[in-house]
Design a protein around this nucleic acid. Structure first.
Lengths: 181, 181
DNA sequence: CGTTATGTACAGAAAAAACTGTACGTACGA
DNA sequence: TCGTACGTACAGTTTTTTCTGTACATAACG
């Protein structure tokens, strides 16, 4: 038979590659997914040099992608006494990983959109008051205002949705079943 | 004062640009976001030529990006009698747009991951039975199996989460407030 | 049935993103 | 305090993605 270690490696590689192909949902490139997958199967915190050796990529790349992984809250930096190098390990709660990614990414989007809407809405309301406005233009302004009010409402909903994830209420609607193994 | 039309345009541009900067959350490039934003403010269905003229981009680009927008369920193709060209307009229910994107993108990811996990799990269970396995390797196999069981559970949760979006249960947890204007 | 308009496949160009190696600032250990 | 090891900024290179123009297949109209 072929080497059993090879088979184990093959099994891991399949999962890792699957993660790599889908990590774009977290806004990260495939190589960051590979890094995450590799770290997931290592049962210890890794240094940048470890990762570099394991993945055959430059330490610089490891450094930048580990930062992305940190910002997306997929990995944690950990300390170990006597070890000078930075150590990282993957978070072990995947439910929370999902929730964190979701809240981080969407909260920022909502915040940016909301600011833009507020500004434009103010401008349009001001513009409506001007007296050198044709009826045709006025109609345009008013439909635009309608539209902005609608999407503002939508972003308010999205904000509340993010809240529901952040404060774990989502698990009331869709429970984790892990406890009843 | 400056031209009122310019001001209207500026207001629209701010929103459109905000969409363009965040459309990556839908897996689409900024230009598709610009296209969507522009269509959002036009109060009529547009042809590829309209879009090309409006955005100053090639018709080919319009064709490919409108397909992406369609697949992501952000726009619809509509028919108008007497018009030979294809007509497109943005969907007007942004809540549903969000739900559709979410379900489409994540369902595919869950499906791919689940298949990979199933395969690897089967391989590892088989491998465990082999009799030329050292204790050390056996331990590795068993922790890998543990891990795969855990993430399988997680993907099951994710699948149920997607169900909750798809069948609109999410609106029980986080209601739309639009009706009470 | 022929003609013309329309959308898209495809190949190449342009732009953006990812990756690498060097060089440097910082902090830890002797 | 000095020396060394570490992480990262930065510039340049490679790879990937996006965009364009041409050429073609298809379908609508006379």
């Amino acid at each position: 038979m072929t080497d059993a270690y090879e088979k184990l490696e093959k099994s891991r590689k399949r999962i890792t590659e699957s993660i790599a192909q889908n990590i774009h949902l977290y806004g990260l490139p495939p190589s960051a997914g590979r890094q995450f997958g590799m770290m997931f199967f290592e049962n210890r915190p890794l240094t940048l040099d470890d990762m570099s050796a394991e993945l055959g990529m430059s330490k610089t790349s490891m450094s930048t992608s580990i930062r992305s992984l940190s910002e997306a809250k997929l990995v944690d930096r950990v300390w170990e006494r006597g070890v000078r190098k930075d150590l990282y390990e993957v978070k072990d709660d995947w439910y929370q990983i999902f929730v964190d990614m979701f809240t981080v990414k969407w909260r920022r989007a909502v915040s940016l959109h909301t600011a833009a809407i507020r500004k434009s809405l103010a401008e349009l309301k001001e513009l409506k008051k001007a007296d050198d406005i044709t009826d045709e233009l006025l109609a345009l302004i008013e439909t635009d205002i309608e539209k902005l009010l609608y999407i503002r409402e939508y972003y308010d909903w999205l904000d509340r949705l993010i809240d529901a994830f952040e404060d774990q209420k989502i698990f009331d609607l869709v429970p984790r079943l892990e406890d009843e193994a």
